[in-house]
Write a protein that binds this DNA or RNA. Structure first.
Lengths: 238, 238
DNA sequence: AAGTGGTCTAGACCACGTG
DNA sequence: ACGTGGTCTAGACCACTTG
């Protein structure tokens, strides 16, 4: 067997093997950090590096005062990306219960970069919406979306009933935006992202920056979404 | 100013601000870990957590015996994803010098899952190619690709001259595969990926699993590629 | 030889959950 | 009260780079 150059990686690899071959099954508790210290004849700090790695990979979740538990690996949920993609529709289609919560909104001036994306004049304001989305109560993504004020008159009146952005847009404005371009990257969460998404500081997430447009081709929305990659994967059909 | 709950994140945030506002410019050296220990009145270990976070985010690179240096943030390179996507073509088009190196290849039986992806009978073998790709000498991605033996007769004869898979396929078989489906996730590198790509163990990368097919629609290739996300971003046009 | 980052040891103290 | 994970302190020892 391949043994790793570093003790902490060796421990991580060992535990990972045990999880994959079923020695520790889903929802089961791993040995405590103290026990692992004794087993590998090392200390707290090194064992925690190993544990952290597994947590960052999404294999386990540590709970203070309780222990580290193997995650139920209900295979990551496929999230199809296409010109017509709506978070709510996508997930309802496969029998899940999506929900969106509007954390915060403001009306403000766009930055130069934002104005360019939305093809706005400098004096045209935008609504910034900060949205956190859940699937079956579990946080799934955190999104900041920008929409030109002129395109959604009376928007603040409708925001109190926010659950799904695209349902709101359809209901009050009969707008069904099309995704025009998306840019995808793997990143680490900001402190706030990690808190909102309830993940460790070093668990990789996907960042997707998109522009949607009206059917006639004018830009409608500019958004940056950060989505948990331990739960979701983007699927693209060509 | 917002101060973080954790000292190591506070230090990371502080340094990040200094980098972003130009106090430390590209290629410049950060203060040594010892200096940072004194400055923040803490110890090696905590300072290293902060430094590691910046390294994992791709902002800096630490070199043993020398110091930690701010990375030149030549904006991440856009990598367009479409049905006709070739690493070599994509990058030559924007004036870069891509190269591929065949690390290893074997002829073997496919797993059940692989056979299903390629629509193979159980007794039909595949070539597995392990490819590392570079842009301007910098490692960019590590790919494992599977191609049915029957589709590329005499393949081993041509592998010694490997530089670009798609050029080889075009030259000897007149095959130009089309990308049919891709699945994208943010993951942490395996120990081997990190070594090959020359990145830290905890820097997030993108994993893309794709099936390509012949023009007439039969599957040709099944590949899993792990690409540095600090250097590249996927761009999709709909 | 001196300075730098990299791994590991040993232990303090806190916060949380359970009995 | 005790065991658990979470943060931090203090310092040893190594590998690498530069003078």
């Amino acid at each position: 067997m391949f043994t790793n150059a570093f003790l902490h990686l060796e421990i991580a690899e060992f535990l990972e093997t045990q999880i994959n071959n079923g020695t520790y099954k889903a929802e089961e508790k791993l040995p405590s950090e103290n026990d692992l210290c004794k087993a590998f004849n090392t200390n707290h700090h090194i064992v925690r590096q190993a544990i952290s790695r597994l947590a960052n990979c999404g294999l386990i979740t540590s709970r203070q005062g309780k222990g580290s538990y193997v995650n139920a690996r209900l295979d990551t949920i496929p999230y199809p990306l296409s010109s017509r993609t709506s978070f709510t529709e996508n997930l309802k289609k496969i029998g899940l219960a999506p929900d969106g919560k509007l954390l915060h909104w403001i009306n403000r001036e766009p930055t130069a970069q934002e104005a360019r994306q939305l093809k706005l004049m400098a004096d045209e304001n935008v609504y910034e919406l900060q949205i956190i989305r859940f699937v079956d109560q579990t946080p799934a993504s955190f999104t900041i979306t920008l929409i030109a004020e002129k395109n959604v008159p009376g928007f603040p009146n409708y925001l109190p009933e926010f659950h799904s952005l695209y349902q709101l847009l359809d209901k009050y404005y009969h707008i069904r935006p099309n995704r025009k371009q998306s840019i995808i990257q793997a990143v680490l969460p900001q402190a706030r992202d990690a808190e909102l998404l309830d993940i460790p500081e070093s668990m990789p997430i996907m960042q997707i920056e998109s522009v949607t447009e009206f059917p006639h081709g004018w830009p409608f929305e500019y958004q940056i979404s950060r989505i948990r990659s331990d739960l979701y994967q983007y699927v693209i059909h060509f």
